[in-house]
Structure formats: structure tokens, C-alpha cells
């Protein structure tokens, strides 16, 4: 049994799953639009929340929020399930799947057999979509792959019950009904963008939002003292991986969000947003410049590399510019 489901490659796994699911129900949205409606751009650096023993730096909100926000905005009824028992989770998956409903799953990357060895670390926020079952094999549509793929039920069970930081616990989600569906309009985009700006600007802790980038810069200046040379470089590697690892569309979603602003500016006929889009794209280039310089820390022996102060300074510049961009974006909505 295989559902007639159009598999499309996407930059980010969650956006991709959401877009492909909506597309299955005849709702055509682009990936940047999904990101925009889901307020999927964010920044946080949390030294108290560890992954692989290092502070977690994240460029996105908590996994699952994009799907919830997008469907809520469009008035689509959805269903989430979470399980304690792996066998029950597979039974439930079959039950829904055989009603010919594609199901989104949150999985861990550690045991995901088709990932190259280098990508398989304890990262538990990967998303994929199950679209069919043949014998003991599930047909899956993973948006980071160009093609569909198959996974045996034992493998799927393993990745659904991965362990580590924020375990997925067999989470699955699907669209229940479109009875209250509203097509995309100006109000939705404004509301989602206001939410994005609020997340980026007004969380009253230093480690979240655009100010969080400056917070990371301040931490970075202390890294060598705190963790030693090697530890500091490892922390830096972790940041770069989060920034560029499969699924951000480059520079931690900055380019993708810029693409959203451009699309929205055409849709709503707001030329200002196109200008903001270009500026955000420039900060994306600054992020890439940061990664480029950071990469030197991983190659050369001591003495030839720059200092963490230089890198931290780059981040401070980015932080300032992003604060400026999102402030203007927020104002542009309030005025109208």
C-alpha cells in the first residue's frame, strides 16, 4: 500500500514535512511561506541545556512548533500522539496509515540507517513522513533526500524511540480535517510575523532572540578560559554544525526567512519587506563569513589562527543588525 503522495525535497526537515503534508491536501504553500507562517526563525544559546555535553545553540524554535503554528493559522485540525510503548506506537501508525492518511514522525538521527555515519549523532528533532507500507517495510518521504526511501519496521521503531536530549518518544502527527480551513491572507502573515519579531526581540532573557547572538559572543570570549583550546574549538564546531547542518537553507534559516519576506512582500504588495529581505540576506552572508573564519580553528595548528575575540566581534555585528531589521519589520506591521 502506498499513498499517492508527492515527495519534494526541502531545505529543512520540518518545513518540508509540513509543506508536503499540506500539498497532499491540495494546499500549495512554498517552504519559505511555511517557515514564515510557523515563525520558524529564532536564536537561542543555552549553556544550561546540553547536547553531547556542550551548550545547545539553536536557530529554530522547539521542534513541532512550526507544524502546530502553521496548521493553527490556517484553521486545520491536527492530531498529535506520543507513546510509552513502542509496539503500540507502531500499531497506531499502521491504523492511521491504512486509512490512507500520511503521517509525520519525529525521529532521532542516531540510528537512521540512510544517513552517512558522520551525520548520525544524538539529534532527536528530525522529521519525516510515512506514506506507505509494503510487507515489513515502510515507505518514507524524508524531505532532506531527493527521493523516497524505505525503512524496515524494526529500524523505524528504533529511530522513533531514540534517546538523548529531548527524546521523540514515538511522536506522530497528521492532519485530521480541513473543515475550518481558511486560505492564506494578510492577517495570518501579519500575526505570524509579529510573533517572529516578538520572539526575536522581546524575550526578557539574554540568551534568546537576536540579543542571544551577542550573548553567545560574550560566552565565546570566555570559552578558552573555561574549556581550554580544544574544548573551545569543539564548542565552536557545535555552533557551526547547528548553523549549517543539513536543513537550514544556509546560515541558520536567514536566507530562507529572507525568501519568505520577499514572497510576502509580493503577496501583500509591501515593497519595504523586500528591502528588509535583502538586508536579512546580507546578515546571512555575515553568518557565512563567520562560519568561514571559524573553520580555520579546526584545521591549523596553534599560532596561525585568529582569536575568539574576532569571531565574537563578528557575532556582535550580526546581533545588532538583526535587532535593527526585526525592529523595523515589527514597526512596519504596527503602523498599518
Amino acid at each position: 500500500m502506498q499513498i499517492d503522495f508527492e515527495h519534494r525535497h526541502a531545505a529543512h526537515c520540518e518545513n518540508g514535512v509540513v509543506r508536503n503534508l499540506l500539498n497532499f491536501y491540495g494546499i500549495k504553500l512554498s517552504e519559505p511561506m511555511v517557515l514564515g507562517l510557523g515563525s520558524g526563525i529564532f536564536f537561542s544559546h543555552m549553556p544550561f541545556y546540553k547536547m553531547h555535553g556542550m551548550a545547545l545553540t539553536s536557530f529554530r524554535p522547539f521542534p513541532g512548533t512550526i507544524f502546530t503554528r502553521v496548521t493553527k493559522a490556517l484553521g486545520i485540525d491536527i492530531q498529535w500522539h506520543k507513546f510509552k510503548n513502542p509496539d503500540k506506537s507502531m500499531d497506531k501508525l499502521d491504523e492511521i496509515l491504512f486509512q490512507r492518511i500520511p503521517v509525520g514522525l519525529r525521529v532521532g538521527a542516531y540510528n537512521l540507517s540512510y544517513f552517512p555515519k558522520e551525520y548520525r549523532f544524538h539529534f532527536n528533532a528530525h522529521n519525516l513522513c510515512v506514506i506507505g507500507k509494503e510487507g515489513d517495510e515502510y515507505i518514507i518521504s524524508d524531505p532532506v533526500g531527493m527521493n523516497k526511501h524505505r525503512l524496515s519496521s524494526a529500524d523505524l521503531k528504533k529511530v522513533r524511540f531514540a534517546w538523548g536530549t529531548s527524546p521523540p518518544k514515538g511522536r506522530m502527527y497528521y492532519i485530521k480535517s480541513l473543515d475550518n480551513y481558511r486560505p492564506l491572507d494578510e492577517e495570518m502573515i501579519d500575526k505570524a510575523t509579529r510573533k517572529t519579531c516578538s520572539d526575536m526581540l522581546h524575550i526578557p532573557f539574554p540568551m534568546f532572540g537576536a540579543q542571544g547572538i551577542a550573548y553567545l559572543a560574550r560566552r565565546m570570549r570566555k570559552w578558552e578560559k573555561l574549556y581550554g583550546k580544544r574544548g573551545a574549538a569543539l564548542n565552536l564546531a557545535q555552533v557551526i554544525r547547528m548553523l549549517e547542518e543539513i536543513g537550514t537553507g544556509g546560515a541558520g534559516f536567514r536566507f530562507m526567512y529572507a525568501a519568505f519576506l520577499q514572497e510576502a512582500s509580493e503577496f501583500l504588495n509591501r515593497p519595504l519587506w523586500n528591502n528588509l529581505s535583502m538586508e536579512l540576506s546580507e546578515t546571512g552572508d555575515l553568518w557565512r563569513d563567520f562560519s568561514y573564519h571559524a573553520a580555520r580553528f579546526f584545521k591549523k595548528r596553534e599560532g596561525e589562527i585568529g582569536s575568539y575575540d574576532d569571531l565574537a566581534h563578528k557575532l556582535e555585528v550580526i546581533s545588532e543588525r538583526e535587532i535593527d531589521i526585526f525592529t523595523r519589520l515589527e514597526k512596519s506591521i504596527k503602523r498599518e
Partner: peptide, 8 residues
Amino acid sequence: ICLRDRYY
């Protein structure tokens, strides 16, 4: 499966 990144 052909894994790829995708840039904007």
C-alpha cells in the same frame, strides 16, 4: 535516497 542540502 540522495541526501542534499538546499540553499536559498
